[in-house]
């Protein structure tokens, strides 16, 4: 078999990495199903709390009770693909062990390499960890149908992109901070609270609500859920997500360059 020379090899590389990422996570299907089970149980608990709140305040945040329940199960379904509790990348471990030196000298972009694997992971988890909570939510409480299915899928894809870009920055920051656990906790706190996973950001009061809705984490759960429910203008929502994806990916690329110089300074 001949090796495809030049540019063609690089083009084929990233889809192949994505496929490997998909296959790797598909191997641990039992763990993924267990995760889906846990996400579903928590979805049911959250749904009851939100139903009680919406019974006290009908129409709060622009949702009716069915909308609030749908929001709950959608955001629970996003936990896997958007990796809302953090992690999903091998990078911090490879930085700690020094293996990242190998990754940095490969003739391929480290960021695109990780992104490809992560997209494969996200596609698999979207199906396996996204399906069950949505289905159980529909059976137990009834959820509303998607307002704009195509825009919703695009919004989920952009959400995964923002999620990856953020987790890549957090992972790469290990190069400077050296304590990946502390960073992981900080990232988890920010993501779970400001993505809309705990409560819809649309009911956060005053300036705090305005701020939380403008931060990048809202692109990971709140915005895709709003596109699904039709409570956000799709074009504006997708633009917001694309903007944050571009900003965070650019920041990640800058950090990759800085990390490469830092590794050289330390002598590898």
């Amino acid at each position: 078999m001949t090796v495809i020379p030049g540019h063609g090899a690089a083009v084929a590389l990233y889809p192949r990495l994505a496929w490997y990422g998909f296959r790797r996570h598909a191997t641990y299907w039992a763990a993924a199903l267990a995760g889906a089970f846990t996400n579903t149980v928590f979805g049911v608990l959250r749904a009851y709390v939100l139903i009680a709140l919406w019974q006290a305040r009908p129409g709060l945040g622009g949702y009716d009770v069915a909308g609030a329940v749908t929001f709950t199960f959608l955001t629970q379904a996003f936990i896997g693909p958007m990796q809302l509790f953090g992690g999903g990348l091998d990078l911090p471990e490879r930085i700690r062990t020094g293996d990242v030196a190998l990754d940095l000298v490969r003739p391929a972009s480290l960021q695109l390499w990780c992104l490809s694997e992560d997209l494969g992971r996200a596609v698999y988890l979207f199906a396996v960890r996204g399906g069950p909570p949505t289905l159980v939510g529909a059976l137990l409480f009834g959820i509303v149908a998607p307002h704009a299915p195509a825009a919703f899928l695009l919004s989920v894809a952009l959400g995964v992109l923002v999620s990856f870009a953020w987790r890549y920055i957090v992972a790469l920051a290990t190069c400077w901070v050296m304590d990946d656990r502390g960073l992981a906790v900080l990232s988890m706190v920010l993501t779970t609270f400001f993505s809309g996973l705990m409560l819809p950001l649309s009911i956060f009061p005053g300036w705090f609500g305005e701020l939380s809705r403008a931060l990048p984490w809202s692109a990971m759960a709140q915005v895709p859920a709003d596109v699904y429910l039709g409570t956000a203008d799709p074009a504006r929502a997708l633009g917001f997500q694309a903007l944050w994806a571009a900003v965070l990916l650019a920041l990640g690329a800058l950090m990759t360059g800085a990390a490469r110089r830092k590794v050289v300074i330390q002598g590898g």
């Binding site: 709390v49 305040r57 609270f193 009911i203």
Partner: peptide, 13 residues
Amino acid sequence: AAIWVIFANTDRL
């Protein structure tokens, strides 16, 4: 913080 947000919207849950 979540409990605070809920009770910023309602007096009783």
